[in-house]
């Protein structure tokens, strides 16, 4: 029980620092690498919760594909590695106030609602059960998401093509 909490604390601290790095760093490539820390930390938290399948999908899809897409986007837009002017706009302080306000409200509500609710883990969730759920109960959303991905793929090709 203590080991779990210690592991959670370490991973959560790394994720929080990575998230702050994403929104604070002055180098666009570093932001992508900080995002890797956050997403890998998320996958580690999923494993801590015994939800193995979604953790590995997160590693494959996010770290394997989405980050690579981001790096390609950074290269193709020739993002400045050492920008002379700031990467932030003039809204930094209003944005900080909004975010702090939101985090205050959310944490207050969460502490009020779930103050001491504990997660009782009964071993890892089997991948076979997840896939059974997806291919029986949730087969229609699954197919719709497949069509959506196809639409997004064709749309991205049409948008980015040189004509």
């Amino acid at each position: 029980m203590i080991a779990e909490n210690v592991a959670f604390g370490i991973i959560a601290a790394a994720m929080a620092l990575g998230a702050l790095g994403v929104v604070r760093t002055k180098n666009v490539v570093h932001a992508a690498l900080y995002l890797v820390v956050v997403l890998a930390g998320g996958a580690a938290q999923f494993i801590l919760l015994g939800q193995e399948f979604v953790a590995w999908v997160q590693v494959l899809v996010y770290i394997g594909a989405v980050i690579v897409l981001f790096l390609f986007g950074i290269m193709l837009t020739r993002a400045p590695m050492h920008p002379k002017d700031s990467l932030d706009n003039d809204l930094r302080w209003p944005a900080a106030v909004t975010a702090l306000f939101l985090v205050g409200i959310l944490v207050g509500l969460l502490v009020h609602t779930f103050h001491a609710d504990k997660i009782h883990l009964n071993g890892p969730v089997r991948t076979a059960d997840i896939t059974n759920d997806i291919f029986t109960t949730y087969i229609i959303p699954f197919e719709v998401v497949g069509v959506l991905l196809l639409g997004a793929l064709i749309g991205a090709v049409v948008l980015a093509r040189k004509d």
């Binding site: 029980m1 779990e4 909490n5 959670f8 959560a12 994720m15 929080a16 998230a19 702050l20 994403v22 929104v23 956050v38 938290q45 801590l48 919760l49 975010a99 702090l100 939101l102 985090v103 959310l106 944490v107 969460l110 502490v111 779930f114 103050h115 001491a116 609710d117 504990k118 997660i119 883990l121």
Partner: peptide
């Protein structure tokens, strides 16, 4: 583990 640990971490990520 408390449920709140995860929810507060998620709220922090969202607000960031």
């Amino acid at each position: 583990m408390l449920l709140n640990e995860f929810l507060i971490l998620a709220a922090f990520l969202f607000c960031t």
